[in-house]
Design a protein around this nucleic acid. Structure first.
Lengths: 155, 155
DNA sequence: TCGAGTATGTCAAAGTCCTGACATCGAGTT
DNA sequence: AACTCGATGTCAGGACTTTGACATACTCGA
């Protein structure tokens, strides 16, 4: 484990092992992904939370606001704002009333499906750049590590 | 959290299976870390951006606002708000004027150092939970993968 | 010397997200 | 039936972050 790529040769403090921490590196990788997705999604008129909502909704139609919030790791309130924006743009529809309970199932409109399909091409290109940067055969282990981290911290 | 696409007989984008949703899993791991840090830092009266700023400042004293922003992956404007809050609490000091240039070096106060030391104990416990969830010997590879991802996406 | 280019700090406005709170709905229990 | 409990939708307020813009300050080359 020799990581001699520390580019800071003249900092007053050599104890900059913050940069070695797992949390820092995870944060950095996530920030890079977020920035890359922001950039490509802007060309499609979508934000990252909006895209995430559409993507989940395509795979699991009929999810409620709270369910979408959990699936995208935001609060119900945040998802409510996102969902309202998507409805105003005509990409998502929700019935104004339901027969039973309070949860209103959200579904993609045809326009929503078209916008998602177009955006997915760009987003998948970003993911491909990410995957190709990894050594062969390490992807599965990386995914497993992600799951272990998430599971260990959500107890 | 399985994306059961069995409802779609023929998913329009089969490439998603190849990529295994790396972005989604990375996002999930980061969200879990963020939530865990939020929780433990609240007991110390610090937000995650505030803690990140203090941590970087402890390792590299004298960094300017813009440098801190880059080190913590936020904009200069965001870091400016964080830094002002930390100054109001007396955890960080910046000279009102400098001899040369515009960048004003920020440094921790004694109180800032104490708050950071106390918070670090809690944060390191979170990181320990994360690391212990990984198989033996996987940490180095995981860190390398994080770096590869960040590098591949920041072009 | 002058100019272009780059980096920094700051302001304004908007968007995003969160915590806290409240009311509603369903399921289960008493 | 009345109650508790959990889940949901919603509102209000605040905290955080971003984009866009502008002025200032250094660097470098013509």
């Amino acid at each position: 484990m020799d990581m001699q790529e520390s580019s800071q040769v003249e900092p007053p403090h050599p104890a900059a092992d913050v940069l070695e921490h797992v949390g820092y590196r995870l944060k950095r990788a996530h920030a890079a992904l977020r920035a890359a997705m922001d950039q490509v999604l802007r060309e499609h008129g979508l934000t990252v939370p909006q895209y995430a909502c559409l993507e989940v909704l395509a795979a699991r139609p009929g999810l409620s606001n709270a369910e979408l919030a959990r699936a995208t790791f935001v609060t119900r309130q945040s998802m409510n704002v996102v969902l309202r924006g998507l409805q105003d743009e005509g990409l998502v529809t929700r019935p104004s009333t339901v027969d039973r309970g309070r949860a209103r199932p959200a579904t993609l409109t045809d326009e929503g499906r078209r916008r998602l399909d177009a955006a997915q091409v760009a987003v998948y290109a970003v993911e491909t750049r990410m995957v190709r940067a990894l050594p062969d055969g390490r992807l599965a282990a990386l995914l497993a590590d992600f799951d272990r981290i998430a599971e260990a911290l959500t107890d």
